[in-house]
């Protein structure tokens, strides 16, 4: 986190996120997290981050690219603060983990 390059940070889906129950209505996702017995309300950006990480760890930059593509946005069009907020929220809920900087991440996936 010291010489911070947010887009070079990598994230992985936490174990707790493997057993989520999803209910999507329009652009809102009502999600039940069994590990905390909590129900969450996610917007599309937050839900797509989780979906993007289901196949394996990704750099933040790669995750963002996938989310933008899924939302039909041009690269760089997703508001940085929204994306960062969603990442922070998912991390806080224990649904994604930040990877150690030395861990190899294949961002070509």
């Amino acid at each position: 986190m010291g010489n911070c390059q947010p887009d070079r940070e990598a994230f992985v889906l936490a174990e707790a996120a493997r057993s989520l129950i999803w209910q999507a209505w329009d652009e809102v996702y009502i999600i039940y997290q069994a590990s905390s017995a909590e129900t969450h309300v996610f917007n599309e950006t937050t839900a797509l981050i989780l979906r993007s990480l289901e196949q394996g760890p990704l750099l933040a930059e790669g995750t963002r690219n996938r989310v933008e593509a899924a939302l039909g946005l041009d690269p760089g069009e997703l508001v940085e603060e929204d994306f960062a907020f969603a990442l922070a929220r998912l991390e806080e809920l224990g649904l994604i983990d930040r990877l150690d900087p030395v861990s190899p991440v294949d961002d070509r996936r």
Binding site: Q23, W25, D26, V28, I30, T39, V41
Partner: peptide
């Protein structure tokens, strides 16, 4: 009413 809003109000 949207179903997502209804869900939250019911829950």
């Amino acid at each position: 009413m949207s179903k997502s809003q209804a869900f939250l109000m019911v829950a």
